[in-house]
Amino acid sequence: MSLLQVTNLSKHYEGRLSLAQRLTGGRKSVVRAVNGVSLYVNKGEVLGLIGESGCGKSTLGRAILRLHEPTEGKVEFDGTDVTALSPSALKAIRRRMQIIFQDPYASLNPRRTVAEIVGLPLALHGIASGDEARAMTTQVLQRVGLQADQIDRYPHQFSGGQRQRIGIARALVSNPEFIVCDEPVSALDVSIQAQIIALLLELKQELGLTYLFISHDISVIGYLSDRVAVMYLGEIVETGPVASVLDNPRHPYTQSLLSAVPEIGAKRAKGRVRLQGDLPSPLNPPKGCKFHTRCPLAIPACQTLAPVTQTVGLDHFAACHRLEEGLSLLESAR
């Protein structure tokens, strides 16, 4: 039984019209940041969500938590339909669903002490107050590797890695079951990044947590995920068990993404796929398969027809017109 089930979730942003545009009958521009995404996360597993900037992966994470209200679709958490919850019920469920942010600087209020930042959920949910809250805050801070005597300091007195630990403590203090990790290590130096990844994995083991881990870094995703979902322009193009997707990627986008990662040691063992051009604007996405403008394997059908998601292996799905032909960009580039 999956802990989180997302069905056909979309998040569209509508541009505002100026008076002149309204008078001339201009149409609202719509950014389809997330477009009909379905996925599930099993209890105790890490689903790695990977994609380049602007693909909508952060928006998806926030739409799941209803931090950004989804335009359509359903999010079920432990059997409860999150999208249908009243504001008070939503507040209650937020104890159980948390988020860790990318930027350790912007995600902590500079005018609050660590005790206030980390203790906030306790106060908001009436879990504890006063000395009890302070004791719980201290305990969770120590668990993430900070010291008890740092509790009354302000965020600017900490380094980036320490700040990220504070953000993790804040997410943990209300004892959640599910955490959206939105690029939690992307802003950190390599050696600190490893510390935080190790901490997140320890916490998962110890507390039985479930993560949706969002990142643009394939090495990180490949290291810590159980399953992966690859996102391109608001849609999931491939999803499956990590070994299966990384060793046998079926969608041409996944293949080119993998081949673009610079590798240490094995110098150019694999071929490199050179993708042409940039990510198209989500304001005006290509018709048909959204990847066709950059896809080396595109055929005329790709320009008009959106591909259907198909099973390509055990629990491994991809959406591409040319799956049956078993083509691999990696093979041809070698």
Binding site: S159, V190, S191, I192, S219, Y223, L224, V242, A243, I264
Partner: peptide
């Protein structure tokens, strides 16, 4: 050596990372 060991790699799945301690 610590820097190289800190880089997560898909091939190292399941093995613990050995980050450089401290800052």
């Amino acid at each position: 050596r610590g820097l190289l060991a800190s880089i997560p790699r898909p091939a190292m799945r399941g093995q613990p990372l050995t980050p450089i301690v401290g800052q």
